[in-house]
Design a binder for these strands. Structure first.
Lengths: 145, 145
DNA sequence: GATCATTTGACATCATGTTGTCATTCTTCT
DNA sequence: AGAAGAATGACAACATGATGTCAAATGATC
């Protein structure tokens, strides 16, 4: 098996933190033009046709309660609502309202345009390979934790 | 110039968010064994021989005030202290105390051992290439922002 | 030197996300 | 059925980090 230099990995770890920060800032900027925030968009986007809060959290890789708070905010602002779940009395289905969907579409359009621009300006990168390595790292971290 | 699929980049973005979360959790775990937290360790480690809060923030890529709060916590707990700065009356130098250095060494030992383990279990990854791609992305994001 | 812009730390406020606890609801096993 | 365990949302406390405002200190320009 090929042996890796721990120093290289350490640099990758720092780079990930840095890029993550930049990505979040960019995400906030994109969402704010539609009066939303990065996390609210992520939750809204993940909901799809209706999904429990716990399931949404799992898909996002977040804690349940973090999503719960965002979800309550979305409902308070009329972008989503809880609907009865025939399969589970307690786990209501969170679903985007028409208004929430409109906002989501706005942000998604801006996001797609933005990703396209970034992708075009990073022609030298091999995103397929990078993605594979990141997934590999995620798996190793889950195993180590 | 090679053209990149925006969809691939989008997947990379999601992977970065996921890995970043896992890394932070791992970092908290490592630091907590020495009674510290991830961010406090980062600040303590960046200080070196003494550095203003603002300079520390720049190196970490964080906001000045975020580091300020961490720094005050470190001082309150006796792990760092402010010293007079001959070059700047207002910008005092933040410096680790002997006790802070001891804690830092503990965490660094555990961290190095941990990175080594993760590096060993991800032999199939090319961290050099991944790092280059991440730096490329960081640059593109800074330009776009 | 005088003036204006920048840098810096202090202070406050806020959004995000984690952690822990609890009661309710569902699922599984016997 | 009944009991034990897991999943779920409500509620609260907390750490993290961003943002904005202010006054003091520094640096740049004229």
């Amino acid at each position: 098996m090929m042996s890796n230099d721990p120093g290289e990995l350490d640099e990758v770890i720092h780079a990930i933190a840095k890029v993550n920060r930049l990505l979040r800032q960019a995400g906030e900027g994109l969402a704010s033009s539609a009066g939303q925030t990065h996390s609210r968009r992520m939750v809204l986007q993940t909901l799809g046709d209706g999904m429990s809060v716990a399931e949404t959290a799992r898909r996002l890789g977040m804690q349940r309660q973090g999503v719960q708070r965002i979800a309550d905010d979305l409902v308070r602002d009329g972008l989503a609502r809880y609907e009865e779940n025939p399969l589970h009395k307690r786990a209501k289905l969170l679903k985007a309202t028409p208004s929430g969907l409109r906002r989501l579409r706005e942000i998604e359009r801006a996001h797609a345009e933005w990703v396209g621009r970034v992708a075009a300006s990073t022609g030298g990168a091999d995103w397929g390979a990078t993605r594979r390595d990141l997934e590999l790292l995620a798996e190793a971290l889950r195993d180590a934790g």
